[in-house]
Structures are given as structure tokens and as C-alpha cells.
Amino acid sequence: MADLLGISLVYYRKMENGDRPLSKQFEEKIRNSFFKKRESSTVFVGTNDYTNIRFQTLNVREVVSKILGLNVENFQLNEYNRYQYPFYISYGHINVYYHDKDIKAGVLIEMSGQACREMEYEFEYHQKQRTWYDFFNDCFLYANKKAPENDDFVKITRFDLALDEQYNPQEGNFDLFKLLTSAREGRWNGRKQNYSAILGGRRTKEGMINDGLTVYFGSKQTHLFFRFYEKDYERASQEMTSVEAIRDMYGLRNRYEISMRKEISTDFIKRYIEEDFDLADEGVKIINDN
């Protein structure tokens, strides 16, 4: 506070204790300090990186048509089963599991990160520039129409929000190693009780390839889990190129993933529909709160 006001800590403490008079000038400075918007050089891009949605209905054809906006005839029927569902169909990486008898299990849509990108392609080029907001809103509109008295008709059983921190060569980026050091030295005071980290790499003919640092907070068995990692290193490893090339081409640095499940994910999406907030801003709030 003394730094914000441009005075010494001793002088500030005297004003705070009432030993020095508080002038109108300092009253205004204090007021402005609390209401000043903090400018940040960090730019985040928020994306839907994993979504599971369950509907209590046996009408898989209608769910595929009304929710995904796709034709069930274009899906492939898979011979093996998953998640104890007797039927499993897929379109690219978009998976749909369904029952023909158990209405509570009903129909489950599963979209990994790659499937979400495929769905966005459908939104933009085949569904009149539909958005994720439209998609989730359609899920609950469908539920209200089919079973207005059933609060369990639709559930977002998993939603992963990814925040990509854009590479900033001028002012730098957040250092995940500092976060890991804080945790190791006991200076991490988060809500989550445990953390873990992976730092990997491998030797190749072209030289050493680093996979970067990944830090986990919480447990994958809980309903809220965090995974922070150096996205530029991961992408460089995948594309067999340099980290510098990835930063130039994609502008990537770190990724912060928030994995929400069950009640937390359903409540988050309901609030998203009601408030239409910016996903990246809301993701930052969740991280800061935890």
C-alpha cells in the first residue's frame, strides 16, 4: 500500500494508526488505488478442451441431431463397448455412447480436445457459425422441452477449460518452475492438499528434446483438478521442431487446464449460460480462488 501511495512504510503506518493526519490528497490516492484497474501483459485464450454430457433419454438419433447438429447415419458403429454402454458410435473423434433400455444412463456424448476442435469446425462451416455458448444452451433447452420436471435429465459430467498463455518475448511469461519451487519450499497455500510434477525429455539423433514441465494440483479423483504445463515444449516435441519455431508459429507458452466434474462442471456451465461470461476470465478467477 505504501508503494502504491508513493510514501515510506513508516509514514504509511503512522497514517494508518492515526498518528499522522490523512489529507484529502491521500484520501483520493487511496480511493484510486482500490478502484484502479490493474493492467496485465499476460494474454489468455480460453478453450473448451474436454466435454462429457449425459442425457436421460433412449433417443440417440434425436440427441445427435438436436445437440450435435449431425446426422447419425454418418457415425460409425464400433464393435467394442466402453463405460458399460452396450452401443458406441463415433464421428471422427466425437464419441456417443447409448443404452436401449437403461434410461438413466441414456446417451453420453464424449468430446476430447481433438473432438472439440472438430466440433468447432462443424460450428463454423456447417452450422451457421454456432458457438459453444449456443451448444450448451441447446442442451438445457432440449432438457426443458423433453423433461421440465427432471433436474437430472442433462448433466455435464466433465468439462475441461484450457487457458493458453500467449508468448510474450518483451515482458516475459509466468515461470512454472517458480510455482513448483514455492510448493517444494512450503510457500504454496492453495486449497488443494497435494501437488505433483513431471519434468521429462529424451535424447535423439538431432540432440536432446525437452518435453517441458507439468505441475498438477489436487487429485484426478476429485471434482476439481489443475494441470499446468509448458505448452510450447509439448507442441515442439509433438511436431519434432524447435520451441522457438512453435512460439513464432503459434504464439504459445504455458497452458493452464482446469478439469471440472459432476456437480462442479454442471453448475459452471449453467452459470455460463446465465451470465455469458468470458471463459478465460472465469478460468483465471477459479485458479486464483484455489
Rank of each mutant, 00 (worst) to 15 (best):
Arg191Leu: 15
Lys220Leu: 09
Thr222Phe: 01
Glu16Gln: 15
Thr42Trp: 10
Arg247Asp: 01
Leu199Ala: 13
Trp132Tyr: 14
Arg20Tyr: 12
Tyr256Met: 04
Arg191Pro: 00
Phe153Leu: 01
Ile7Arg: 06
Val243Arg: 07
Asn95Ser: 14
Phe268Thr: 06
Glu149Pro: 00
Glu62Lys: 15
Glu171Ala: 11
Thr47Val: 15
Arg187Gly: 01
Val284Lys: 15
Asp281Cys: 10
Val43Cys: 03
Ile209Glu: 13
Val96Trp: 05
Ser65Asp: 13
Ile30Pro: 02
Asp138Ile: 02
Gly201Asp: 02
Gln238Gly: 00
Thr131Pro: 02
Glu165Arg: 09
Ala236Gly: 06
Asp160Gly: 05
Phe35Gln: 11
Glu16Lys: 15
Glu206Arg: 12
Arg255Pro: 03
Lys36Ile: 12
Tyr133Pro: 08
Lys155His: 11
Gly283Thr: 04
Asn95Gly: 05
Leu224Glu: 14
Glu122Lys: 09
Phe140Ile: 05
Glu39Asp: 12
Phe159Asn: 07
Tyr121Asn: 12
Arg253Val: 01
Glu275Thr: 15
Leu9Gln: 15
Arg191Ser: 10
Glu274Phe: 03
Pro169Tyr: 08
Ala183Leu: 10
Asp211His: 11
Asp152Ser: 14
Pro169Trp: 10
Gln56Ile: 05
Gln25Thr: 13
Gly251Thr: 02
Ser265Tyr: 00
Ile286Ser: 06
Gly251Ile: 07
Met119His: 09
Ile286Lys: 10
Thr241Ala: 08
Lys192Arg: 11
Leu77Tyr: 07
Leu141Thr: 12
Tyr125Asp: 02
Asp102Asn: 15
Phe174Glu: 13
Gly190Thr: 07
Leu213Val: 05
Arg235Asn: 01
Asp175His: 09
Arg82Tyr: 13
Lys262Leu: 13
Val243Lys: 10
Lys231Gly: 06
Ala183Phe: 01
Gly190Ala: 03
Lys36Cys: 05
Arg54Tyr: 06
Glu118Leu: 04
Ala143Pro: 08
Met119Asp: 01
Gly106Asn: 09
Gln221Arg: 15
Tyr250Trp: 04
Cys139Glu: 07
Arg261Glu: 09
Phe34Lys: 14
Ala236His: 02
Leu70Ala: 09
Ser196Thr: 12
Arg31His: 07
Leu176Arg: 00
Gly218Ala: 04
Glu110Thr: 10
Tyr98Ser: 05
Phe44Glu: 04
Met15Phe: 07
Gly218Phe: 03
Asn71Glu: 11
Gly251Tyr: 04
Ile264Pro: 00
Ser40Leu: 07
Phe26Gly: 00
Thr266Glu: 14
Tyr12Val: 03
Tyr272Asp: 08
Val63Arg: 07
Gly218Gln: 01
Ile269Ser: 02
Phe26Glu: 05
His93Thr: 14
Met249Ile: 11
Tyr12Asp: 08
Gln166His: 11
Leu4Val: 05
Leu22Gln: 08
Phe136Gln: 02
Gly92Cys: 05
Phe34Glu: 07
Ile94Ala: 06
Leu163Gly: 06
Met1Gln: 09
Lys66Asp: 15
Asp102Ile: 04
Val63Gly: 02
Ile53Phe: 00
His99Leu: 01
Asn150Gln: 03
Lys101His: 12
Lys24Ile: 11
Asp134Val: 02
Asp164Phe: 01
Arg247Leu: 01
